[in-house]
């Protein structure tokens, strides 16, 4: 069967499609955003705390490590009250101003939109790539890959090194099962009762017999997992993908990005009353989702970055083809609603 050997060679090229699968991207995104939020929050706390401390110190101290910085404050003690007043308001504003300037400069320095080519062949390629915001997307891509190189990938490698394969499989099953409600609602939304039934049964079986999702009993019983997300549901409603976007959590599009937001709303974990360790669970679940998801694609992504001349373009192409194929697979799923054993 010689042609098969060619497919062996496709591993590297196929990597792109598996690298970021839809629901994984969703899971990946959440903790990232949360991490950014936390950073922001702790940053402002830190700034606030520092500010307060320096007010106190400024009133007493005129020299030392902070002396130079605080001296004007101490020297003009008459104006101390007003100075303190202004400074309190000034610090966060400066931060915001800096951020605004940073944003403005990144926007001004390079166009967000790529110029539309004139040459007909080039234009055809430009249209096929569906990536009018390429300059911005490439920036995000570079940022994400830098983060991946120095943070996510090493952590994922450590995870693979430290946790044995069977345990990782169980954790993977748990993550998949916990996402099953979101898949279910999307199956319903796409009007595919058989698929919805599958994901519903998977949830029921795995959460009970599967000990909270750690064992994929449903798969053994003939209900294997299928992926679905709101981006695909929207695609089945005939909504075009819109321009390709590379978001911090991976390749996406306007439609899939919106779908991601909808998926967050469909996850039942957001509706459980606060407390009862839910926040810790959410954190652990999402962090684990990211690390586990990344660890599954260590070799794929390494191979892709080694073999592709332009990894960004390769990922873009593979992602868009794969999303199209996924949406088509759902559209063409006309299986009977009654299971095989009943007929």
């Amino acid at each position: 069967m010689p042609p098969g050997t060619l497919s062996n060679a496709t591993g590297a090229f196929k990597a792109g499609k598996t690298v970021f699968d839809g629901c994984r991207a969703c899971r990946e995104a959440l903790p990232l955003q949360m991490a950014f939020l936390m950073l922001e929050r702790s940053g402002s706390l830190y700034m606030g705390g520092l500010g307060r401390m320096q007010h106190k110190v400024g009133a007493r101290m005129t020299s030392g490590r902070n002396g130079a910085w605080l001296r004007p404050c101490a020297q003009a003690r008459q104006n101390h009250e007003t100075r303190q007043g202004t400074r309190r308001g000034w610090r966060p504003t400066a931060g915001r101003l800096g951020l605004a300037m940073l944003l403005a400069s990144t926007t001004a320095c390079s166009a967000i939109k790529a110029p539309v080519p004139k040459d007909p062949d080039e234009l055809a390629e430009y249209k096929a790539a569906n990536d009018p915001y390429e300059p911005l997307n490439r920036k995000t891509y570079n940022m994400t890959m830098t983060f991946d190189k120095y943070a996510l990938r090493p952590v994922a490698k450590a995870y693979v090194w430290a946790v044995p394969r069977p345990v990782r499989n169980s954790l993977g099953n748990m993550i998949t099962t916990m996402n099953e409600p979101s898949v279910f609602f999307n199956d319903v939304g796409a009007g595919k009762p058989r698929r919805a039934g599958d994901s519903f049964v998977r949830w029921c079986i795995n959460m009970t017999a599967g000990l909270g999702g750690f064992i994929d009993v449903a798969k053994m019983a003939g209900y294997p997992h299928h992926a679905n997300d709101a981006g695909l549901t929207l695609a089945n409603w005939g909504i075009a993908s819109g321009p390709y976007l590379f978001l911090p959590m991976g390749p996406s599009s306007l439609r899939d990005g919106i779908g991601y937001g909808i998926d967050q709303g469909l996850s039942p974990w957001n509706y459980v009353p606060r407390g009862y360790g839910l926040i810790s669970f959410n954190w652990a679940y999402n962090m684990l989702g990211v690390i586990h998801g990344r660890s599954e694609h260590l070799d794929d992504l390494d191979a892709l970055q080694r073999d592709a001349l332009d990894p960004y373009a390769t990922i873009r192409s593979a992602y868009q083809q794969q999303r199209k194929a996924q949406a088509e697979a759902i559209r063409n799923d006309h299986r009977a609603t009654v299971p095989a054993w009943y007929q």
């Binding site: 598996t18 001349l309 192409s317 083809q321 794969q322």
Partner: peptide
Amino acid sequence: DVIGEGASLRLTQRNDYSSFIAR
């Protein structure tokens, strides 16, 4: 051509090459 999970090997490769040349 070989299509693995929806992604065509030759199309993906073509986009890689042409994007590289264009850039």
